[in-house]
Design a protein around this nucleic acid. Structure first.
Length: 151
DNA sequence: GCCAACGTTGGC
DNA sequence: GCCAACGTTGGC
């Protein structure tokens, strides 16, 4: 799951251990579908920092709730407000996440690109802009392992 | 700040 | 249903 650390960082999540944070504001259907259909409580998450230098995986989080309607879609004061989302039939869904585990260091995008295990990873494909993508167990473990050893 | 890539919108 | 225009993402 991607986040801009200026908006919400892994350190922000870690600062509230055990607390569930709603992953709100997703306004892309594919990303929504992954949260709604594929994420289960307890699933581990690679928390990726985008739009920062360097971008990369900052830590491990965990899915902490079943999917439910994103309340910011109904909030006229929210920048994520969507007048077309009907509360009776919500267009946007989210899951809550919580802090899981530290890495010793950030695994940078550059480093990920050089890892052969990650050659098919969605987030590394050209032009990928999805903020949420599925990760295979192999990909997950390769990144986690890299982050567990000092550079 | 630039710009390629991509998703969405809306006229037709 | 097509597609041009537009807005956004995100690496660099």
């Amino acid at each position: 799951m991607k986040s801009e650390p200026d908006v919400f960082s892994f350190a922000d999540l870690k600062a509230r251990p055990g607390q569930k944070e709603p992953w709100d504001g997703v306004r892309n259907y594919q990303a929504r579908n992954y949260m709604r259909d594929d994420m289960k409580v307890g699933d581990r998450i690679l928390f990726y920092h985008s739009n920062t230098n360097p971008p990369g995986v900052a830590g491990v989080a965990e899915v902490a709730s079943a999917p439910y309607a994103d309340p910011t879609a109904f909030d006229q004061k929210s920048k994520y407000y969507d007048p077309k989302s009907d509360p009776e039939n919500p267009r946007w869904m989210l899951v809550e996440v919580k802090y899981k585990e530290d890495l010793k260091r950030l695994v940078s995008l550059e480093e990920m690109k050089a890892m052969p295990e990650l050659s098919d990873m969605r987030v590394l494909q050209r032009g990928n802009r999805l903020s949420i993508t599925p990760v295979t167990k192999l990909e997950f473990e390769a990144i986690r392992k890299a982050g567990k050893v000092s550079a």
